[in-house]
């Protein structure tokens, strides 16, 4: 009887495991079905190399380049800010801070992850944007940089917690060996601990990128959403996520515009899939 019960539970758990994968596959097919329908009316060349995103023009122009560059620009900016900060934070938590402080800091970083993105967007719009505008003397504070700063705060919890795991997972013997050879604490950290944890650090950066590139609400509120080809971080940009969120409400289901937004979603999905794949590879490498 007990065995029978156990079997059933095992099966249920197995089913749950497969259900998750099934959902991902279904979502992918759903995206692909509607996204690829765009290419019946617009050539892939126009979509992937088009420099103008103008879905309400006659005829409509669905060029993903400004949106793709907008997303990349905001993401790179966010990573450039969050990685150094996150790395320093992770080293401090994992290696330097006394135990009591470590627990407080970890809880604090996790709390940062609990802030809803709309709240970060709101703070970004009312406080950060005027600050950036005045600091650089710009005509508007709604720029890629503003988005990058806000998104950096959203990426930091992901980056710090995974980096810190990787750093604490470095075997004690490595550090002890280094210290025994006469290296100082700092030398041990950057010559022994960080290289030994490097694949975990890479994974954390990758997952941070994945977190940032998929973020929608905050970027829509603070990046200005002008679909220009961006030349600098101090310009308004339009990201792929903001485009989908902003335009989906007005499209007629089954129209070319609707399919174009799905095609953008497909590109976004492909990007995050590749990023997660590499992050996973890096994490597995560390385990070996």
């Amino acid at each position: 009887m007990k065995k029978f019960f156990e079997k059933i539970i095992e099966k249920i758990i197995l089913l749950n495991g497969f259900a998750c994968i099934l959902f991902v596959i279904l979502i992918f097919f759903f995206l692909a079905k509607d996204g690829l329908a765009l290419f019946k009316v617009s050539s892939p060349i126009q979509f992937f190399f088009g420099l103008l995103w103008n879905p309400l023009a006659e005829p409509p122009q669905y060029g993903i380049v400004p949106l793709l560059l907008g997303s990349i620009m905001v993401t790179l900016g966010a990573i450039a800010i969050s990685v150094p900060l996150g790395l320093a934070c992770a080293i401090f938590i994992g290696e330097i801070a006394p135990r009591w402080m470590r627990e407080i800091l970890k809880a604090g970083v996790e709390l940062l992850a609990a802030i809803p993105s709309i709240v970060i967007g709101f703070i970004g719009m009312t406080m950060l944007a005027p600050f950036v505008k005045n600091l650089f003397g710009l005509p508007t504070g709604l720029t890629a940089l503003t988005g990058s700063i806000a998104l950096a705060f959203m990426a930091i919890p992901t980056i710090v917690s995974i980096m810190e795991d990787a750093i604490t997972a470095v075997p004690r013997t490595y550090k002890e060996g280094s210290l025994a050879l006469g290296a100082t604490h700092w030398q041990t950290i950057y010559r022994v601990t960080i290289p030994a944890a490097s694949s975990g650090i890479v994974a954390s950066i990758m997952l941070g990128i994945g977190r940032v590139i998929g973020e929608t609400m905050a970027v829509m509120m603070i990046t200005g959403n002008a679909s220009v080809i961006p030349h600098s971080l101090l310009q308004p940009v339009r990201t792929m996520t903001a485009t989908i969120a902003a335009e989906m409400g007005e499209t007629v289901i089954g129209s070319d515009h609707y399919f174009a937004l799905f095609a953008v979603g497909l590109v976004l999905f492909a990007i995050t899939f590749v990023i997660n794949f590499f992050a996973d590879m890096a994490l597995h490498q560390q385990k070996k």
């Binding site: 995103w53 200005g224 679909s227």
Partner: peptide, 12 residues
Amino acid sequence: PEQFAPEVLMLP
């Protein structure tokens, strides 16, 4: 034929 220039900011 006219349309919004790409430089126009789109606010939510």
